[in-house]
Simulated scan of single mutants.
Amino acid sequence: MVDLSSAVRRGHPIAFGIFTVFALIVAIIASAVVADFNSNGQPSSKLVRDSTRFMVFAGWWGFLFSLVYIGLFLSGIGGFLSSIASHAVFIFLTWVFWLAGSAALSTKVGSADCSADDNGIPDCSALRAICAFGWIGWIELTCMLGVICYLAYKAFSGGRGMNDGFA
Rank of each mutant, 00 (worst) to 15 (best):
V2H: 13
R9S: 13
F16P: 02
T20K: 03
V21H: 01
V26R: 02
I28P: 04
A30E: 02
S31F: 05
V33N: 02
V34G: 01
F37P: 00
P43H: 06
S44I: 13
S44N: 13
L47E: 14
L47I: 15
L47T: 15
R49F: 12
D50F: 08
R53Y: 15
M55E: 01
V56M: 00
A58S: 07
W60S: 04
W61A: 07
F65C: 06
F65E: 05
L67D: 05
I77Y: 13
G79F: 03
F80L: 15
S82V: 08
S83G: 02
S83K: 03
I84Q: 03
A88L: 10
V89S: 05
F90C: 03
F90R: 00
L93R: 09
W95A: 05
L99A: 10
L99K: 06
S106F: 14
T107P: 12
V109R: 00
G110Y: 07
D113P: 09
D113I: 11
C114A: 12
A116H: 12
A116F: 11
D117I: 13
A126Y: 15
L127P: 07
I130C: 06
C131M: 14
W135L: 08
W138Y: 07
W138S: 00
E140M: 13
T142E: 02
M144A: 09
L145W: 07
L145R: 03
V147T: 07
V147Q: 01
I148Q: 07
I148M: 07
C149H: 09
C149T: 10
L151G: 02
K154P: 02
K154N: 09
K154W: 09
G158H: 04
G159K: 08
F166S: 10
